[in-house]
Design a protein around this nucleic acid. Structure first.
Length: 487
RNA sequence: GGCGCGUUCGUCUAGUGGCUUAGGACACCGCCCUCUCAAGGCGGGGAUCACGGGUUCGAAUCCCGUACGCGCUACCA
């Protein structure tokens, strides 16, 4: 393995969507591969026919692509290449399972589900320290085996685990780990439907695909001794293992659907930037040892190392994700934001309006520091797109005084006299009126903002005036004068 | 129950025996800036480093127990 370029894989089962925990596993694999000029393989572990979900694979790949984690190789499909599909490799697993039978490392088992269930119940009743298969079929004579085989009784193939052994392996993240073979069950390798279980398919594929580093979730740590046993039984070199800490709910249980969104597509649909999600998820269990928090994918690639991955689980905290989203959004160029805003508008009630780029760019620049999500360029400031339909009651109480109508009238007249006013023209006019009336600019600005936007918060006053334009400003002042004063 | 893994501010984390009165980030609070809200700047509260024993001149850091949490314990992955 010296000087060999690493080969890693992301091996999800097609459950319907890409879990954010899966995204992080995929990301760490990807980062490790790219950091070492290695290869990132995608393999779909679809060996459970009962769990097949229509469209799940396409969904998985599109989520991975959206996140920017392209896989590097796979079997040819036309000119393209797809992921490896375990369901298309059944004969391979069969061949290796047979090899294990021949060498006595595995055996046929004809036990019925009923007997297995009874066995488990009995073991539980006797309060045996660990429940496992009793090797009943390992002791069958050759004649019995042949008889059962030829009469077509349903069968599985089980791994023959020797007792009284210590199984050891090293994990980059966990260090040295040991298990007693007495605690390892005679795992089913090939199911009665002819499909392999995860354990066999996983080991065979990782070997055949020359995977050098198995980087996966911590939930696999307990079954790693089974995998180690299989490598040894085949006399294959073991890969390096790295078991990643889990992602957790706020109550520290394993991140689940019940307590929030877990699918990558949920976050995408809610308007999270892929840069933010990737950045966030990368930091859940890894850091470079400095204070840097803001990363782009290529920076992550350059800085990543498995040695710096943490051991303990990390709570998936939306607040930090939201902050990162805002940070990434602000780093976007105006033209990137413009394109995003345009597609967002297509999803909004303003889709039939034909806004000029210039107009949208003005909105973007006035709101950039005030939003965390693209959609907020629309729904926190709808007043740019349409006149306010109502006025914030609290703001009325606070800012709409008895002399307000008169002041706004004065402002309106002043504005009306301008032709093609710039932002500065508006500012000069307002300054002039404030001096004339001998009131602070703030006294004019607050009610004016309310009249124009219906709100008490928003971008700079003169930006708002300029973006709306003289005619719209005048119309809105009139409307507000009528509606608020009559309240 | 058994086996395994883990445990530093609310959350993500720095820390690998003395540089630590435990540092940073998010969140929270205050001040500054200011036409509001943000952004930005400055500051604040917040972790007896799960607990108890050792080892050591000295431990968040090493060792041993305990507790708690989580994972696995399927012909699921």
């Amino acid at each position: 393995m010296i000087n060999e370029l690493p080969r890693v894989r992301f091996a999800p089962s097609p459950t319907g969507y890409l879990h954010v925990g899966g995204l992080r596993t995929a990301l760490y694999n990807y980062l490790f591969a790219k950091n070492n000029n290695g290869t990132f393989v995608l393999r779909i572990e679809d060996t459970d026919r009962n769990r097949y979900v229509e469209g799940a694979v396409e969904n998985l790949i599109s989520a991975l692509n959206w996140a920017g984690l392209q896989y590097d190789e796979g079997p040819e499909i036309g000119g393209d290449y797809g992921p490896y599909m375990q369901s298309e490799r059944l004969d391979i697993y069969k061949k290796y399972a047979d090899e294990l039978i021949d060498t006595g490392k595995a055996y046929y088992c004809f036990c019925t589900p009923e007997r297995l269930k009874a066995l488990r119940e009995e073991q539980e009743k006797q309060k045996l320290p660990q429940a496992k298969y009793d090797k009943h079929c390992a002791h069958l004579s050759n004649e019995e085996i042949q008889k059962n085989l030829s009469s077509g009784i349903p069968k599985v193939i089980r791994l023959n685990v020797e007792s009284d052994n210590t199984i050891q392996f090293d994990d980059i993240i966990r260090g040295h780990v040991e298990f007693e073979s007495n605690n390892v069950d005679d795992q089913v390798l090939i199911k009665s439907d002819g499909y392999p279980t995860y354990h066999l398919a996983n080991v065979v594929d990782d070997h055949l695909m020359k995977i050098t580093h198995v980087i996966r979730g911590e939930e696999w740590l307990s079954s790693t001794p089974k995998h180690v046993l299989l490598y040894d039984a085949f006399n294959w070199e073991r890969p390096v293992f790295a078991h990643l800490p889990l992602l957790l709910n706020p109550d520290r249980s394993k991140l689940s659907k019940r307590q929030g969104d877990v699918a990558v597509e949920d976050y995408r649909d809610k308007g999270y930037l892929k840069e933010a999600l990737i950045n966030f998820v990368a930091l859940l269990g890894w850091n470079a040892g400095d204070d840097k928090e803001f990363y782009y994918l290529d920076e992550l690639i350059n800085n990543f190392s498995l040695e710096r991955v943490n051991k303990s689980g990390a709570v998936f905290d939306l607040q930090k994700l939201n902050w990162l989203n805002a940070e990434h959004l602000r780093k976007k160029t105006d033209s990137e934001l413009l394109e995003m805003l345009k597609t967002e508008i297509q999803k909004s009630k303003f889709k039939d309006q034909n806004y000029s780029d210039k107009f949208l760019l003005l909105i973007i620049n006035s709101m950039k520091e005030r939003v965390s999500f693209i959609k907020e360029f629309i729904d926190t400031c709808t007043y740019f797109y349409e006149a306010p339909t109502e006025y914030e009651q609290k703001a009325i109480e606070k800012n709409w005084k008895t002399d307000t109508p008169n002041q706004l009238l004065k402002l309106k007249e002043e504005f009306a006299a301008l032709s093609n006013p710039t932002k500065e023209d508006f500012e000069n006019s307002l300054t002039k009126i404030s001096e004339q009336l001998n009131v602070g600019k703030g006294k004019l600005i607050h009610p004016l903002r309310l009249a124009l936007s219906g709100q008490s918060t928003g971008p700079g006053m003169f930006d708002l005036l300029f973006i709306l334009g003289k005619d719209e400003v005048i119309t809105r002042i009139d409307t507000a004068l009528n509606r608020i004063s009559s309240c």
